[in-house]
Design a protein around this nucleic acid. Structure first.
Lengths: 155, 155
DNA sequence: GTATTATACTTGTATCTTACAACTAAAATA
DNA sequence: TATTTTAGTTGTAAGATACAAGTATAATAC
């Protein structure tokens, strides 16, 4: 009995999550790409905006992508002069990636756009439920992190 | 004062959502593709499993993709004999897409895998919080739908 | 203090993802 | 019947992603 009910809950959970992902991917494709940058490119800009001078490796970890994929995205952004690769003083293997002023500007512009839609979505939630939602989304993130960690151990 | 606080909340909301999306995309790439089907392909199989004999157009709507994109994904799945395109009896323009037994089998296999990880993630959430989380995720989905609808009207 | 191993990243290659515009065929309508 | 709308496919183009193989530098081992 208990198992049946948790199974149903997990199914419902799965449907909600997959639904959200599809919808958000759709939103991001439309909101972000209208500024001439792709979704992945925007994520990289965002990451660099909040954490300056990251290495390729750190960037890959944060984005849950391989370093080679990051190389390609960073190539694109470098071509557009939105970021710069700088060599580390001490360890010559390491590249430190930094936003150019131009890159910062385009990120803020596209981010404002996304932020506006995020605000509208958030304000559709009943005021009394908002704080709970924030707290549960944080728990959910932690939970996924935890799952990923145990996965790594099993492999 | 009120504005400042809601701004902070929206930022936190944004970070949680983006974080979840990145992590879940990562999970799906790894869990699903190990069965020889891509993430998009799996989404299509899933949609067809729960709603039989959809048209290309319906499929596109549900996946938040264009029809031409669906054509490509369906092409891939047809090549692998996981689905079939059947012409509608009445309207010859319409194609009805159905899972083959082989397609159903591979979907269930990969779905069991994803379901298992979903269960682990869900069970990391405190039991007392689970029902609330389900209900809020549903609200959030509705909220994104609502936002998308008002968007369309504005365009 | 060189030889080996490990690390950080790039490149080659291959497949998948996605959209837009131009097209074809069939249905609806005028 | 002529015109328009709808459903879907194809050509084209750019981006996303990973794996394996390669390069350069640093760390370690003996």
């Amino acid at each position: 009995m208990k198992n049946v009910s948790i199974r149903k809950d997990v199914e419902e959970f799965h449907n909600s999550i997959i639904g959200l992902i599809k919808k958000y991917q759709f939103r991001d494709r439309n909101e972000v790409t209208s500024f001439g940058i792709s979704v992945s490119q925007c994520y990289v800009l965002e990451t660099l905006y909040f954490q300056k001078a990251l290495t390729m490796k750190k960037l890959a970890e944060q984005m849950h992508l391989t370093i080679s994929t990051i190389t390609r995205i960073v190539d694109q952004l470098e071509r557009k002069k939105f970021i710069e690769r700088k060599q580390d003083d001490k360890d010559l293997r390491i590249r430190r990636i930094t936003l150019t002023p131009k890159g910062e500007k385009i990120f803020l512009k596209s981010w404002a756009n996304v932020f506006e839609s995020e605000r509208e979505i958030f304000e559709n939630i009943k005021p009394g439920h908002r704080k709970v939602l924030l707290s549960l989304l944080k728990d959910l993130n932690d939970s996924v992190d935890q799952w990923q960690d145990t996965c790594k151990i099993n492999k």
